[in-house]
């Protein structure tokens, strides 16, 4: 962890106003920003931890707990709202048993909502990791999620197991 954080800070050394890119880089490398990371950044940038925490918590991009292997992002932008994506969100909640902002106990799936993914022409839509799923319907959702949910272990499932090993 310490090494990854160092690597993240290095390219920005001596650059003014580099806190946000440093936080972004740490999150990219570590998946989230841990308590340890705050103290390391504070030492290196000669800032107080609370100042850094204040900046980090202002921006929704930053996470402070371990993320899931696969992140579902349900878009609740205007076009998706008008086309009923909150119904799809409810269905996902029912299917995987966690609420928005939560992670399943096995860290397999996480659920988040976002304000507009900028692909409004495909509304209603959601993404799982980097994959876009547009024109969602309850039926389509079921099919997509079955790849990820327990019991019906698909290819993705095997992958995540390998990653953990």
């Amino acid at each position: 962890m310490q090494k990854l954080i160092d690597e993240a800070i290095k390219p920005y050394e001596g650059e003014k106003g580099s806190l946000i890119p440093i936080l972004q880089s740490i999150q990219e490398k570590c998946g989230y920003i841990s308590e340890d990371a705050f103290s390391v950044i504070a030492q290196r940038l000669k800032m107080s931890e609370h100042e850094i925490y204040g900046v980090a918590t202002f921006y929704t991009q930053f996470r402070f707990t371990r993320p899931a292997d696969h992140l579902i992002k349900v878009c609740l932008g205007t076009a998706c709202h008008v086309k009923g994506n909150s119904l799809n969100l409810n269905n996902i909640v029912n299917m995987i048993g966690i609420k928005e902002g939560e992670v399943t106990s096995d860290y397999r799936l996480g659920l988040e909502t976002v304000h507009c993914l900028g692909a409004c022409a495909l509304a209603p839509l959601a993404t799982i990791d980097e994959e876009y799923y547009g024109n969602l319907s309850p039926r389509k959702l079921e099919k997509i999620l079955s790849k990820y949910t327990k019991g019906k272990a698909g290819i993705k499932d095997e992958e995540s197991k390998k990653k953990k090993d």
């Binding site: 946000i20 890119p21 972004q24 202002f58």
Partner: peptide, 26 residues
């Protein structure tokens, strides 16, 4: 290039400037 970090208010010019300087985007 500066990438935002997910705060809508940063589209406002003074907030955007704050964000570029590594501060809270208010």
């Amino acid at each position: 290039i500066k990438t935002g970090a997910g705060a809508f208010v940063c589209g406002e010019e003074t907030a955007l400037i704050g964000s570029i300087m590594g501060k809270r985007g208010t």
